[in-house]
Amino acid sequence: MRTNSFLGILWHTIFILTVFILIFPIIFALGTSFKPLQEVYNNVLNIIPIAPTFDNYIGLFERLPMIQITMNTFTIATVVTIMKMLISFLAAYAFVYFDFKGKKFIYFIFIASIFIPFTVTMIPNYLIMSSWGLADSIFGVILPQISDAIGILLINQTMRSIPFSLIESARIDNISHSRIMIDIILPLIRPQLMSTGIWFFVNSWNEFVWPSLMLKSVDSYTLPLALQMFISAEGGTDLSVAMAVSIVTMIIPLLLYLVFQKYIIGTFTASGIK
């Protein structure tokens, strides 16, 4: 509406500044990844390299099995996402459309699990996975990541936005639950599910702590783990290569975000906590 234009300019400036602070590091990473290390140390302020080079990337792909590492990251993120979506979807369906003894209590227990800090579960999970022989494998990383109650919470909210009458009339027509889920609910909330899926995918992709406990050999590493290989107390941090790894790590999540941002922001904006 008719906003005080002084206020408008002031706030636009603040917002632009904020955006700059948030986005600058990414641009900085990009520029640094194309600089030779000597330039990184001696040409600190230039974002655009004076002597740009692909060496960091080439060396990276030569020295580390980057393709394998990226595939590991991708596989883990995909499986985790699909499993999380599936079991959360089923669970949410049960919570939204059924009434049963102890429902409130059980729901409470699941939501409560969000409040359990990872330090409480990390040691036993580590021991379980080791004893199942999954210590250095992607399954060892995948399985515990699936138990994330945020999935139930998010899909719960999404499902509640569907008009109940639709489901009710379907039940009256004796349509099976699977059909309801697939033919009625799914199409209605597809954008939200997609956004939630992307959110899960990216979070798993960027996950560091749990994979670092589980994965020990370079062949099973994920991208964030590959990154910490370039930070060495003894030999010094090779910032230029570290930035190259960072960029490689960032590409897929950023691409997903930028391509689907309308959906993603839309979903988060619409769901809210009402």
Binding site: G8, N206, L223, P224, L227, M250, T269
Partner: peptide, 28 residues
Amino acid sequence: LILNRLKGFYKTAIFLPAFISLVVGSIL
């Protein structure tokens, strides 16, 4: 309430770092 333009841009830009690994952020 106050800003009328660039709303979409601001939202997109501000939400962007949420999609980046915090390990990357820390090193940066």
